[in-house]
């Protein structure tokens, strides 16, 4: 399938660019850490309350960082008319979206896998025997988040006030993702109730599937000039 190779090539381009500049990596890792600390201060010092809030804090940190990385993946394209040249390639526009999505998703999965143990230490959250399910939650949650973030980042890329607009537009859409991911994480680490987490994971998977189809189908209307 030649399209799949193009998707990989675009993802590779974005990841390579990030590997060389490290602009987003440094910013988002520290930003996630700072969000963890700020929320810990805001929640208070009672150990039990902190541990209870841990899944929510983890996903809020991931969500805020995800907005930065998705916005940046188009920000860099705006220089030197890079995006126009990317659009000139004789490939379906959807492959550009999927390539960018793949890069953003991989990046967010890495960030999530890093933040999981960090928040486990900060908030006294035992990862325990449910860690494969936790990893699945990170995979599905960041995919849904990445889908909406990548899509709306393309939509807002050449608008005025895009930095403030992107979170305003995307957060109402990703509420079910955040809710389901937080509940699944909570069910795994706090309740140890794996079957409960599975129903939330199903919601995540359904969201991912529907938006993967919808966003891929209508992406070319967003970038068409």
């Amino acid at each position: 399938m030649p399209e799949f190779g193009i998707v990989l090539a675009i993802a590779r381009k974005d990841l390579l660019q990030e590997l060389r500049s490290r602009a987003v990596t440094v910013a988002t890792i520290f930003f996630s850490g700072i969000v963890l600390i700020i929320l810990a201060f805001a929640i208070g010092q009672e150990e039990r309350v902190l541990a209870g809030a841990a899944p929510g804090v983890l996903w809020v940190a991931l969500a805020f960082s995800g907005v930065i990385s998705a916005a940046q993946s188009y920000q860099s394209e705006l220089e030197e008319t890079a995006f126009e040249q990317l659009l000139l390639y004789p490939v379906p526009r959807a492959t550009i979206f999927l390539g960018k999505l793949l890069a953003n998703w991989l990046y967010m999965v890495l960030l999530g896998s890093l933040m999981l143990p960090v928040s486990a230490v900060f908030f006294d959250m035992p990862l325990g025997p449910g860690w494969p399910l936790l990893l699945l939650t990170v995979l599905l949650g960041t995919l849904g988040f990445g889908l909406i973030a990548t899509f709306y980042a393309a939509l807002t890329a050449n608008l005025r006030a895009r930095e403030s607009l992107l979170p305003v537009l995307m957060f109402p859409v990703v509420v079910p993702i955040l809710l389901a991911a937080v509940r699944a994480t909570g069910a795994i680490v706090q309740l140890g109730n794996f079957s409960l987490s599975l129903s939330w994971l199903q919601l995540l998977a359904g969201f991912d599937l529907v938006y993967l189809v919808v966003c891929t189908a209508i992406f070319h209307f967003v970038v068409e000039e």
Binding site: V175, P176, L179, A180, R183, S199, W200, L203, F207, V210
Partner: peptide, 8 residues
């Protein structure tokens, strides 16, 4: 999805 999430 919003409905399901809010309901659950």
């Amino acid at each position: 999805f919003n409905y399901l999430a809010a309901e659950w």
